[in-house]
């Protein structure tokens, strides 16, 4: 495997009596696309929220490039080069595209004024336009347009380009193709490939196994808070993965394990 970028070891997280994450460990290599699969409630979002600093884990360790790190806030994760596009939240609809692209990392003048520093509006707009051009959605989108006027696919593209722009080591996408049309879905998958080709690692959560086989190098399957299988895409097929996810065909699983 390529050089290790992110390694999780024995992550555990409970919400009251719900053990959302029981004992999750895996490794993500440089320039690798790993698909994280599992049924609703399997703990996928919980896992990536822990990595991206939305909430702390109860136990376990996270290593970035071999260094043990503690991720206590979303800011910590961003500073470590981990950019996440969450399932339920990514953009502020009442803000312009440009303001969304730089939210939390606004270019400012007079930096010493802290949070009262004036935004560098010219730079904000220029950088946003350049970025929109780079990801190939420039023709129609105005950096000053409000995000509330965009389609779901356009929003997703904006969120992904935002993750790309900060040259993150790891980009995490939680169900990025949800609710998207055919064309938009292809756009997102194309982004994933572009991002990988640019040297970023991608952790992709999805319910669509076909997408997985199009873009992923490796598959990780979760069930009830645990990682139950890990396979390279080349070594498996659609039906096998499907049965692992649902847990329907345990015998096939066992056979596989023995065969290895």
């Amino acid at each position: 495997m390529a050089q290790e970028v992110l390694r999780l070891q024995n992550l555990q997280k409970s919400f009251g009596s719900v053990r959302a994450l029981k004992n999750a460990s895996f490794t993500l290599g440089e320039g690798e696309v790993v698909a994280l699969l599992g049924d609703n409630g399997a703990g996928k979002s919980t896992l990536i929220k822990a990595i991206s600093g939305v909430f702390p884990v109860d136990r376990g360790e996270i290593y970035v490039r071999g260094q043990k790190v503690s991720i206590r806030s979303t800011r910590d994760a961003m500073d470590l080069g981990i950019e996440t596009i969450h399932q339920d939240t990514s953009l502020a609809p009442d803000l312009s595209i440009a303001r969304n692209l730089f939210l939390g990392r606004e270019p400012v003048n007079l930096k010493w004024l802290g949070v009262f520093a004036p935004l560098d509006l010219a730079k904000l707009r220029d950088a946003a336009s350049a970025l929109l051009k780079r990801v190939g959605i420039s023709k129609k989108l105005d950096a000053d347009a409000l995000v509330s006027t965009l389609s779901g696919g356009e929003r997703q593209s904006i969120a992904i380009s935002r993750a790309m722009q900060f040259a993150a080591k790891v980009i995490i996408l939680d169900e990025p193709t949800n609710n998207l049309g055919v064309e938009e879905t292809h756009g997102v998958l194309r982004f994933v490939k572009e991002v990988r080709d640019a040297g970023h690692s991608v952790l992709l959560i999805t319910h669509n196994i076909h997408h997985v086989f199009q873009v992923a190098d490796r598959i990780i399957v979760m069930r009830r808070g645990e990682i139950v299988a890990e396979q390279t895409v080349a070594d498996t097929d659609l039906l096998t993965v499907e049965s692992i996810i649902t847990g329907a065909d345990m015998s096939a699983l066992l056979r596989e394990a023995r065969a290895k």
């Binding site: 939305v54 979303t74 961003m78 996440t84 969450h86 939240t89 953009l91 939390g104």
Partner: peptide, 12 residues
Amino acid sequence: GSNRNAAVARGV
């Protein structure tokens, strides 16, 4: 005010 979770996810 527009989307609190999105803002928090950006480190705000």
